[in-house]
Amino acid sequence: MTLKNETRSAVLSIGRVYCDLIFTGLQGMPVLGREIFAENMDITAGGGAFIMAAYCAHAGRKTALLSRLGTDALSMGLEGQLAASNVDLRFLDRAAEAGPQVTVAIINEQERAFLSRRAGQAEPATLSMALEWPDARHLHIAEFATLAEIPGLVAAAKAKGLTVSLDPSWDETLIFDRDFLAKCEGVDIFLPNVEEAAAITGETEPLKALDRLSTVFPVIALKAGPEGAYLASRGNVLHHPAKPVQVIDTTGAGDAFNAGFIHSWLDGHDDETCLSDAVAMGTLAVQAAGGATILKC
């Protein structure tokens, strides 16, 4: 399941870094033509690649962020949080056209709304260097959009002996692609949530979606929010419930889940332990506003 060479233990996490503007403490959601006010706003480093990397580093795994960062004021304002995360930034590609890259998140109890802007290309100039990194053992792709822009990414990682994981991440323009699964060839661990799995497979029932996905991926960890998560691996299917906690913000919980699962999987733990560790990490994430805020990045 994992590489035996213990000198190779690090994770590369590839994807876009966003400046997240997170509004909480609202009396309702915005409607056209009316202004409402939020009690709180947090400005945090976001994007699945960074959040996953921060939680993976928090778990004690050497993890490097493989991404691009703009040179504009919003992007540069994230430098402190990125540096404080204990994530290795040696492969961070700084370029003017890579920003500003922003997500506005509006959170009101169980309602969430997002508005994002992507900037520049997804492929960092440091990609080849990162894949040659002697410590690298695993590549995590934080969103299918990155794989769509770099279609040879999985094959390149596998050629260097790395295992690969993929979180599809919701993208309305890509999630319903009929060739979605074919474009994921070679991925070892697939990490969707139930809505993404339903869109990809056409199956709204988690076990049926897992059955369909199992024909493509060796391991599928399916995130089901307050219902916990499911795991399909080697013909076995497991479910692990979520622990009830006070939920502040679910932003980044799926990426924290990914970190918990990958860290445990790379350590060679059994399926139940991998799933339990993943749910625990995701549960930690929902208890603060912002994807990695609870880690004090």
Rank of each mutant, 00 (worst) to 15 (best):
Q101V: 08
Q101Y: 15
T103Q: 06
V104Q: 13
I106S: 02
N108E: 15
E109A: 13
E109V: 11
E109K: 15
R112D: 06
R112C: 15
A113N: 14
L115T: 09
R117S: 07
R118Q: 09
A119V: 06
A119C: 08
Q121V: 13
A125W: 10
L127Y: 11
S128V: 10
M129Q: 12
A130Y: 07
A130Q: 04
E132I: 10
D135Y: 12
H138A: 12
L139K: 03
L139I: 01
A142E: 10
A142T: 14
A142G: 07
F144K: 06
A145N: 02
A145R: 01
A145F: 03
T146W: 03
L147Y: 00
L147F: 01
E149V: 05
E149R: 14
I150N: 10
I150E: 05
I150P: 11
P151A: 06
G152I: 03
L153D: 01
A155S: 14
A155R: 06
A155T: 05
A156W: 04
K158S: 07
K160F: 01
K160D: 00
G161Y: 03
T163V: 10
T163D: 00
T163Q: 05
V164E: 00
L166N: 00
S169C: 11
D171F: 02
E172R: 13
T173G: 05
D177H: 12
D177I: 13
D177G: 08
R178N: 15
L181E: 01
E185Q: 11
D188G: 13
I189V: 14
N193C: 12
E195L: 05
E196S: 03
A197W: 01
A199N: 07
I200T: 00
T201A: 00
E203S: 07
A209Q: 09
L210E: 02
L210Q: 11
D211C: 07
D211W: 11
L213E: 00
S214H: 06
F217P: 07
F217G: 12
P218D: 00
I220P: 02
A221L: 03
A224W: 01
P226M: 13
P226W: 10
P226Q: 15
G228C: 11
G228S: 14
Y230K: 07
Y230D: 04
A232S: 02
S233R: 11
N236W: 13
V237W: 11
V237S: 15
L238V: 08
H239P: 06
